[in-house]
């Protein structure tokens, strides 16, 4: 049961090829369980989780705690649902871009998902975390950590190797994204109308390593 007793509603969205483990990942995150069955997600779905978020104040004092209600959108990776799922991109505040560590193809498609995001998300450079899933299947691994890390660095986004099966790094990936979104909110309200030209042209796809992320506002 959901009630309105929370401070923030944060909407995150998982995307990536079909079968990389988006649904399983989110299920692990919200319910801490693993389901080995593969059921194709029909179009879209979402899960919810209430978490407590503690801010670290800039001056080192003890941060405040907030109740955050997470709405975690799950999308179908299949092409035929694409127009539906991408339409939901624009209502999400942060993204879990996932690929399967045991599938080179799913990793190659990350670039395509990136451009889908750029075209359909709420802004040109939304907060994204790159997630390589199925880390537990080490014998079947097709994508090396170094490779993925390089790509993530190129985009200036964090990278995690997770396993929905064991739960490894799953929380960390989501919390990192949540953190980015929370920081983004602050930046957006504190730098009102702070010019649009600090982002123009420099989309992440142009591979500009960004040490510090700037707010699009």
């Amino acid at each position: 049961m959901t009630d309105g007793d929370y401070d923030y509603l944060i909407k995150l969205l998982a995307l990536g090829d079909s079968g990389v483990g988006k649904t399983t990942f989110l299920y692990r995150y919200t319910d801490n369980k693993f389901n080995p069955k593969f059921i194709t997600t029909v179009g879209i779905d979402f899960r919810e989780k209430r978490v407590v978020y503690t801010t670290n104040s800039p001056n080192g004092t003890t941060g405040k705690t907030f109740k955050v209600h997470l709405q975690l959108w799950d999308t179908a990776g299949q092409e035929r649902f694409r127009s539906l799922t991408t339409a939901f991109f624009r209502d999400a505040m942060g993204f879990l871009l996932m690929f399967d560590l045991t599938s080179q193809q799913s990793f190659l498609n990350v670039r395509n998902w990136m451009s889908q995001l750029q075209a359909n998300a709420y802004c040109e450079n939304p907060d994204i975390v790159l997630v390589g899933n199925k880390a537990d299947l080490s014998d079947q691994r097709e994508v090396q950590e170094k490779q993925a890390k390089e790509l993530a660095d190129k985009y200036g986004i964090p990278y995690f190797e997770t396993s929905a099966a064991t739960g490894a790094e799953v929380d960390k990936a989501v919390v990192t994204l949540l953190d980015l979104v929370m920081k983004r909110m602050e930046q957006c309200v504190d730098k009102p109308a702070a010019d649009t030209h600090n982002t123009d042209g420099t989309s992440k796809l142009d591979a500009v390593p960004t040490a510090e992320k700037k707010c699009a506002c």
Binding site: Y8, L9, R90, Y122, C123, C188, T196, A216, C217
Partner: peptide, 15 residues
Amino acid sequence: IKSGDWFLEQQAKKY
């Protein structure tokens, strides 16, 4: 921040 206004503002810039 809490109302999500920040997000709508951003969205409105693009859309």
